[in-house]
């Protein structure tokens, strides 16, 4: 087991190197660079930009160097934990991402836990009460949740909230609390705002998970070992929790791998719509402006998280599933 973990961890190193190269190439793929975007913006607003200025800007940002030099510079700093410099914000990437990370992780974690808390119990109920009224009701809602895009739902809920209360509910808390330390009032105020994203996530995010879990569990319930156990007189609840549920959960453990990068990107679309200060909108702005070190670094960290997540999920699978453990 330990050997397996060490081996898997060592494989990460060349993978990371490959990842950084791929990320850098992808970020550079769109035509032009930050400067061309920036100059076009200036020009579209009637500002004049001369050739001398462009050349000087190119030199300042290092765009006059060949691509591999730009990559090496980025990589060198990355190894030191310095993710480079954002052109748009004129700030170190570390500081930008750092200031948004706590809110991002908090929202992602809370929403993930919320989704699980809702999806597993009702999935369990639906599977064990197949074709009952409750099953139909939950399945119906989940169809709604899967088919309505979350950004649309968010705008709708916000507008309905406005029509009822005549108040604006975007953001994480009211403007008066911005930059203030966390007090009881601020927490209460935040709860007044944060329920909208959570509700949206609960409706849209739960649906998929619920349906998968229900289907997995139903598959297991029909298997002979369940019948055998029942015939042997194992109590119903104990039987379900100990065997079929455990197996039905395995696909979810395998998804921990792509849950980790999700923690960093943090419900990007929803954040855009509801104006939540997460990393997601930062990444979008960076990509739109071709702010390459900012965009590259966020994508790189997300890739890194995906790798770590995959490693963790593999280990967890080995721990939970004896079939995998024994085959090692």
């Amino acid at each position: 087991m330990l050997q397996y973990i060490v081996k898997r961890t060592l494989v990460l190193i060349p993978l990371l190197l490959a990842l950084s190269i791929v990320v850098f190439i992808i970020i550079q793929l769109p035509p032009g660079d930050y400067l061309t975007t920036y100059i076009n913006q200036l020009r579209s607003t009637g500002m004049e930009v001369t050739e001398d200025q462009i050349k000087a800007l190119e030199a300042r940002y290092g765009f006059d160097q060949p691509m591999y030099m730009q990559y090496l510079k980025w990589m060198k700093n990355l190894l030191k934990g310095d993710m480079g410099y954002s052109f748009v914000y004129n700030r170190p990437v570390n500081a930008l991402v750092g200031s948004r990370l706590p809110a991002t992780i908090a929202i992602s974690l809370v929403s993930t836990i919320l989704i699980w808390l809702i999806a597993f119990p009702i999935g369990f109920y639906s599977a064990t009460h197949k074709y009952s009224f409750g099953d139909y009701a939950f399945t119906g809602i989940s169809f709604f949740g899967v088919s309505v895009p979350e950004f649309l739902l968010a705008i709708l809920i916000m507008y309905l909230y406005f029509l009822v209360t005549r108040k604006y509910a975007g953001g994480l808390y009211s403007d008066v609390y911005a930059g203030k330390p966390w007090t009881w009032d601020k927490i209460v105020d935040m709860l007044k705002h944060v329920w909208i994203p959570l509700l949206v996530i609960a409706i849209t995010g739960t649906a998929g998970l619920f349906k998968t879990f229900r289907a997995n569990l139903l598959d297991e319930l029909g298997k002979p070992y369940v019948k055998t156990a029942r015939a042997k007189g194992v109590s119903n609840m104990r039987l379900l929790i100990k065997y079929p549920v455990r197996i039905a959960l395995i696909p979810f453990i395998a998804t921990v791998g792509w849950m980790l990068p999700g923690l960093i990107s943090g419900q990007t679309v929803l954040s855009m719509v509801l104006s939540l200060p997460t990393v997601g909108p930062l990444l979008i702005t960076a990509l739109q402006n071709q702010d390459m070190y900012l965009a590259g670094s966020i994508v790189f960290v997300m890739g890194l998280m995906a790798m770590i997540g995959t490693l963790v999920s593999d280990i967890l699978l080995a721990v939970t599933d004896p079939r995998i453990r024994n085959s090692m």
Binding site: F162, R166, Y168, G170, G171, V273
Partner: peptide, 20 residues
């Protein structure tokens, strides 16, 4: 004075109609 930076124009519109 306060300038709230929001992520999309829809939210500016929401703030306008909410009198904010």
């Amino acid at each position: 004075a306060v300038i709230s930076i929001v992520e999309s124009t829809d939210l500016v519109n929401m703030k306008v109609i909410a009198g904010e």
